[in-house]
């Protein structure tokens, strides 16, 4: 299982992660990205791509 963490203090709600992988992230009512839980290892490349594309570099995947 992947651990995807969004640093809420860094996230500015650009939504690039949602636009890259809409099933892995969504914006909450505050406009902050929330990662989907229970994502399998087979999605690592997609999750890392979304992390790379974050303008604020607020996402870590492990």
């Amino acid at each position: 299982m992947l651990t995807i963490v969004v640093d809420r203090a860094k996230c500015e709600g650009y939504g690039q992660c949602v636009l890259e992988s809409e099933d892995l992230f969504e914006l909450d009512d505050d406009g902050v990205s929330v990662p989907t839980s229970g994502v399998g290892d087979e999605r690592r490349d997609d999750a890392e791509r979304a992390a790379d594309m974050c303008p604020m570099q607020a996402i870590t995947v492990s």
Binding site: G13, Y14, G15, V18, L19, E22, L27, G31
Partner: peptide, 9 residues
């Protein structure tokens, strides 16, 4: 309009 851009993308 961040989230609304998904279908256009």
């Amino acid at each position: 309009r961040t989230s609304d851009l998904i279908p256009y993308r």
